[in-house]
Nucleic acid binder design. Structure first.
Lengths: 134, 134
DNA sequence: CAGGATCCCAGAGGATACTG
DNA sequence: CAGTATCCTCTGGGATCCTG
């Protein structure tokens, strides 16, 4: 946003948001995207190709898949490796920092399960079970 | 979404997303909203009134503030108490489950700080320090 | 195979003005 | 004081078709 003219005292409170330098917002940011959690889940145990990801997530379109992968790549969460072959081959893998996100996700899952239990009594059937963390 | 006709085998993978029953998505969901983190931070140590919240977040408009508070309330994260007085008074507080979100947020902050350190070398100056957790 | 190029739409967020 | 009512914009995600 532009430099909105605000008195300047309580501004401190949301300075972190305005400057986009709040680590919590950053964490939410990299995970916000309709397919990102699913993509990270797909990559939890190693590399996958563009087509594999597309097949694993049947209702995502190539255009959107590309977009989500690009964002994750720009955020440093995944790495893209393209091989100069015919036909083309591209593999995506989690980066180190990307892998370090998994425990954080597990922690969110735990809260979410408690939340479901208390809110609707309906259990959630997510993918992120303890299995994925070695 | 509608019941898109998908073969039905790999569909399991994103069933959690489609059904919106993934606890991780739920956690991200309740926190996704431009001002929600800031509002939760404002309420971390007890109740606050509508006007107080507005003054603490100078660039939010009443309409949007109402919207964000309504969503948090519907999600069971905060509670709204209106007093039948003139002039009106309304107080917002975290619910029990809402308070239980704070440690999760702290955990996200920790990852975010590591992320900043590794990505840009720029430290984040967020609000969610260890102070807020008793 | 792994995308790129276009066009499109719903919904979150915001500006502004008004009210019980 | 604590909102509500309208109107408007911008962008994330999607549909569709095309290509090195």
């Amino acid at each position: 946003m532009k430099n909105d003219t605000i008195p300047g005292n309580q501004q401190e409170e949301n300075a972190a948001l305005e400057k986009n330098s709040c680590p919590v917002q950053a964490t939410i940011g990299v995970l916000s995207g309709k397919w990102k959690l699913l993509l990270l889940f797909q990559l939890r145990n190693g590399e996958k190709r563009f087509g594999e990801l597309g097949r694993a997530l049947p209702s995502i379109t190539p255009a959107v898949l590309t977009g989500q992968l690009r964002e994750l790549e720009e955020d440093g969460i995944i790495q893209r490796k393209a091989y100069a072959e015919i036909p083309p081959r591209v593999e995506y893998t989690l980066t180190e920092i990307g892998r370090s996100l998994l425990p954080v996700i597990i922690n969110m899952e735990k809260w979410g399960l408690e939340y479901f239990k208390q809110m609707k009594g309906a259990a959630g059937d997510c993918l992120w079970d303890d299995q994925i963390i070695g």
